[in-house]
Computed example of a mutant assay.
Amino acid sequence: MKYLKFILFGLVATSISAQAAGAASLVGKKSKTKDYNYSWDTREYFVEDCSQNANKWICKCVLEKLQHEYSEAEFLYINKDLYNNIDHPEFVDFVSTAVDLCDSEYTNSRRNDSYGTGDGLAGLLGGGGGGIATKAKGSIRTPSERDIDISDGAEIRSAADIMKVVRQRTPGLRHVYNKFLKKKPGFQGKVSLKFTIASGGEIISISVANSTTGYSAFDDEVKADVSRWKFNKVKSGNTTVTIPFTFSE
């Protein structure tokens, strides 16, 4: 038994020194278990970035769920794409579900309906907001491509290109709605925003084209949040669009 231990130790040492990458790759291909362990730097980066706009507890909870499904390399690759407005709908759906689960876990752990989080996805995907908000109860319907009215510059940006950003960023407006639901429970409606996107991707002008909410302060905050969205760069020219956002409990 003693010699067997030495043999095993020798085999392990040899594999580590000579073929570590190959062995690691083999394990990765063979194993069906998806639990991963991100590096300290990646974990710290995620929590710090996320907690600028969301509850830190929720950020850590979502990170744990990400490590059950995505490898560190996959996460870093997708995260870079999201910052460059490259769509990953399956990942966004996964994070959205993870946020809802973590919201519920947080609320249950506090055993108090007056606390919760409604802005988790906003923080994770750059929607803005921050802190601990009311328990998420409002919803927002993500506009479809046919909802986008391009009044100028359609030859520069297509509705499909614009939708990539709209689809990613619209869920982040939920935290705005939940915040104002605290002040005026039960209100709902549609806010249509008209804005112009410059060639660099930034929004250079924005206004409320129409609203049925009857709540101008809410409309203005939605406008302010959307004004910070960033679109893909193009060679030249501006594009003006009108997009409706529908909010309901």
Rank of each mutant, 00 (worst) to 15 (best):
V191N: 01
K164N: 13
Q188V: 11
K182D: 04
N178G: 09
G172K: 08
I203P: 13
F187N: 06
K194S: 04
F180V: 02
H175W: 15
K183V: 08
S207L: 06
K182C: 00
L181Y: 11
Q168T: 13
Y177T: 08
S207R: 10
T196V: 04
T170A: 07
Q188K: 15
I197W: 09
P171E: 14
P171M: 14
S158K: 09
I197M: 12
V166H: 03
D161G: 04
K190C: 06
E202N: 12
K194V: 00
K184Q: 03
Y177P: 10
I197S: 11
A198C: 04
K194M: 03
E202L: 13
F195H: 07
K184T: 04
G172L: 08
V165I: 11
F187W: 12
K164E: 14
P185I: 00
G200L: 04
I162E: 02
V176G: 09
G189H: 03
P171A: 15
K184L: 01
S158Q: 12
S199C: 07
D161N: 09
V191A: 01
K184S: 03
S192G: 00
S205R: 07
K183W: 05
F187I: 05
R167M: 06
K183Q: 13
T170N: 10
L193D: 06
V165G: 04
K183G: 01
K194R: 10
L193T: 07
Q168M: 13
I162F: 01
K164D: 14
G172C: 07
A198D: 10
L181M: 09
L193E: 02
I203Q: 07
S199W: 09
F195I: 01
K190I: 12
I204K: 15
I197Y: 09
K179H: 11
A159V: 08
N178V: 09
N178Y: 06
T196C: 06
F180A: 00
V208Q: 06
R174L: 15
L181N: 13
I204A: 06
S207W: 01
A160C: 02
L173C: 14
A198T: 02
M163K: 15
P185G: 00
K164H: 11
E202W: 10
A160D: 12
F187R: 05
G201S: 05
R169V: 00
V166A: 05
G189D: 01
K190V: 14
L181W: 12
